[in-house]
Design a protein around this nucleic acid. Structure first.
Length: 478
RNA sequence: CGGGGUGUAGCGCAGUUGGCAGCGCACCGCGUUUGGGACGCGGGGGUCGGCGGUUCAAGUCCGCCCACCCCGACCA
């Protein structure tokens, strides 16, 4: 076990991130470059993310299904922008069972094409619509530069694919699912994302419009934490997804797709983590409460352990762990569980038992300020629930304050160049690609999103000074 | 693909003039410890990235290859 301190975020943010993932056992490097193994602790976190999202998908009328990993190469080529966007990063199978394949198979980078193909078989009538399907799975994109969780060659995600009779319905669906992601991010992960629309250059290959939730990481860089795309009739036309409307007219469907991946784990790490390690939101943490018994000798052990075990049972409604390891000291355990981000630690020793209490330590509030005592007794589970709720709320508020403290509205282009070095700039933008490109050239910052909750305004583009109606966030991104 | 770098125990590294393969952490055993990262003693673990060459002798010198990392380019 590595007992050295982590690098601090200020001395080396990316080393802090990498080492924290390895040491907390969320994930490990696989033998293939750019691939990761999601370890049990990381997968448990992902399962909790899945559960929170899947519930919301079901509540909004979606069903899960599973489509194949392999896609005929020709499918990708049917939608021009789609193939242009994805061809540089495809993994392609050319041999199967020792025989050269008639047609190469792409390992799916995303499933619009194969699902579009199936939808064209299934959809004949307006009565078949809407089709609302989600799939949980893995995809492969041969990225050049990879980072654990943020950008790996293979990653796990969900991808929703829907087909509708009208553009309005499809747009509504796109925005509905963006709102589902926002609700999940804010209320489950305590990640205060900003929902908005992507610019033409930043949108998904093949989409008419892409929407995103953008999150600010602890180094102020932006992370696209989930996306929802209005695909127009692009894929419906490429794959002949057609239906007869009530007037017996043949029409193309309007489709959407939306996805959120294991990248979101990176968002949680970098939104809440501190120099001591992970800080996980109670609603998603694989272990919500850890109980650390403390004793010096057999007599004290005999006194403490039955109480600790009884408490463990009393808290069975939570994801609770009783740390019975005898080979490490309590001090080691405190640091160990803090590094792993467990939201609430309960210490129970002879002194506590004498006083009829347990000591609780809140992960998100380091040191003595986060410690208090709770009386042992029938009320303890309700009190623990209250503390977890309080932690969840405090984490969201802290992240929101950090975000808002690093968003500025520049008065001119010079000021904007300064702002994006350590924050996000919110400014009017004329909508032209040239202005985006100039900002990227000058600062490495890109447009992140055009936030949805803004009134139509009148302003001047921060770059060129021409009339602009909408503000956009500029930031350096992962 | 261009520039730079690194490959020696699970991890981090040392290895001098070519001459027995080492150190710290981790791991295993025993004992003492245990309210904020304990300590002692004992122990296990190696294709020195690969192939070839020079040599009595190669981790060390030479050649070729491979992998990975950093910067750039590229990119949901």
């Amino acid at each position: 076990m590595n007992t050295d301190k982590l690098p601090t975020r200020s001395e080396n943010y990316s080393e802090w991130y990498n080492q924290l993932i390895l040491r907390s056992e969320l994930a490990d490097y696989a033998p293939v470059r750019g691939c990761m193994v999601v370890r049990p602790y990381g997968w448990a976190l992902w399962e909790n993310i899945q559960g929170a999202l899947d519930k919301r998908f079901k509540e909004t009328g979606h069903s899960n299904a599973a489509f194949p990993l392999f896609i005929p190469m020709s499918f990708l080529e049917k939608e021009k922008e789609h193939v242009e966007g994805f061809s540089p990063e495809l993994a392609i199978v050319t041999i199967g069972g020792g025989e050269k394949l008639e047609e190469p198979l792409v390992v799916r980078p995303t499933s619009e094409t194969i699902i579009g193909y199936m939808y064209s078989k299934w959809i004949k009538s307006y009565r078949d619509l809407p089709v609302l399907i989600n799939q949980w799975g893995n995809v492969v994109r041969w990225e050049m530069r990879t980072r654990l969780f943020l950008r790996t060659l293979e990653f796990y995600w969900q991808e929703g694919h829907t087909a509708h009779a009208t553009a309005e319905e499809a747009v509504d669906e796109t925005v509905r699912m963006l709102n589902v992601y926002t609700d999940f991010a804010v209320n489950e992960a305590a990640v205060p994302v900003i929902p908005g629309r992507k610019s033409e250059t930043e949108k998904f290959a093949g989409a008419s419009d892409s929407y995103t939730i953008e999150a600010m990481m602890g180094d102020t860089r932006a992370l696209q934490a989930g996306t929802s795309h209005f695909l127009g009739q692009n894929f419906a036309k490429a794959f002949d997804i057609q239906f007869l409307d009530p007037g017996n007219q043949l029409q193309h469907c309007w489709t959407t797709s939306w996805g959120l991946s294991t990248r979101f784990i990176g968002a949680i790490i970098m939104t809440h983590g501190d120099d001591q390690g992970l800080v996980l939101p109670p609603r998603l943490a694989p272990i919500q409460v850890v109980i650390v018994p403390i004793f010096r000798n057999d007599d004290e052990q005999a006194k403490v352990m039955p109480v600790a075990e009884a408490l463990n049972r009393q808290l069975s409604q939570f994801r609770v762990k009783l740390d019975t390891r005898s080979e490490v000291t309590p001090g080691f355990k405190f640091n160990d569980w803090e590094m792993r981000g467990v939201p609430l630690r309960i210490e129970i020793g002879p002194k506590d038992i004498d006083n009829g209490v347990v000591t609780v330590a809140r992960r998100h509030t380091p040191g003595k300020a986060g410690k208090s005592t709770l009386p042992l007794g029938d009320e303890i589970a309700a009190q623990v629930q209250a503390v977890l709720d309080e932690i969840q709320a405090a984490m969201l508020e802290k992240a929101r304050n950090f975000r808002d403290a690093h968003i500025h509205e520049p008065k001119d282009y010079e000021e904007m160049k300064q702002i994006v070095q350590d924050g996000w700039a919110l400014a009017y933008w004329c909508g032209r690609t040239e202005c985006e490109a100039r900002v990227k050239e000058d600062t490495k910052a890109t447009t992140r999103c055009i936030p949805l909750d803004q009134p139509e305004g009148q302003g001047e583009c921060i770059v060129c000074g021409q009339p602009a109606k909408k503000k956009v966030y500029f930031a350096r991104a992962y």
